[in-house]
Amino acid sequence: MAEQQKNKISVDIYGQTYKIIGTESTGHMRLVASIVDDKMREISVHNPTLDNTKLAVLTAVNTVHELLQLKEQIESLEEQLKKLKD
């Protein structure tokens, strides 16, 4: 199997520059970085005394929480769809 081409970009997240390498499009990687930056800034507004490490961990916790909620919503919608098909 051929190896997918990897894209490499620099992004700014919460005032820091990071190099991101991935097989997704650069637009997708920039969007991900932008969402992380926005979430960190949102959390920072409500918790201005957090250091960057704690802010990053809290951002990760909030993001995973949102991911799990979305997965539950998808499962619920799939069950509803299955019932409608039957």
Rank of each mutant, 00 (worst) to 15 (best):
K8P: 05
I13S: 06
Q16V: 07
T63W: 01
A60P: 03
Y18K: 10
T59G: 02
Q5P: 11
D86P: 05
A2F: 14
D51R: 02
I74Q: 04
Q80V: 14
Y14F: 10
D86G: 13
R41F: 00
K85L: 10
S10Q: 12
I9P: 02
S34Y: 11
V57L: 04
N47L: 01
Y18Q: 10
D37V: 01
N62Q: 13
Q69T: 05
Q5V: 14
Y18C: 09
T53M: 09
L81E: 12
D37W: 00
K6P: 07
S25R: 08
N52T: 11
E78M: 15
I21A: 10
L68H: 06
E3L: 14
T17K: 14
I9G: 07
G22E: 05
D51C: 07
T26I: 11
M40L: 03
N52E: 14
R30D: 11
E24K: 02
L68N: 06
L84F: 13
Q4W: 13
A56G: 04
Y18V: 09
M1P: 11
L58Q: 01
V61G: 04
K19N: 14
I13N: 05
E42F: 00
L77V: 15
I9K: 09
L67A: 05
I74A: 02
S44P: 02
M1C: 12
E66P: 07
I21S: 13
I74H: 02
Q73L: 05
R41S: 01
L81R: 15
S10D: 15
K82E: 11
Y14W: 11
Q4G: 11
S44E: 03
K19Q: 14
A2T: 15
L68E: 08
K85D: 12
N47D: 01
R30I: 04
Q73P: 00
S34K: 12
T63H: 07
Y18R: 10
V32Q: 09
H28V: 06
I13Q: 03
E3T: 14
H46W: 01
T17A: 12
V57A: 03
L67I: 07
V61D: 05
I74K: 01
T23Y: 04
N52C: 11
N52D: 12
S25Q: 10
Y18F: 14
T63Y: 08
T17D: 12
Q4E: 13
I35H: 12
L68W: 03
D37G: 01
T53S: 09
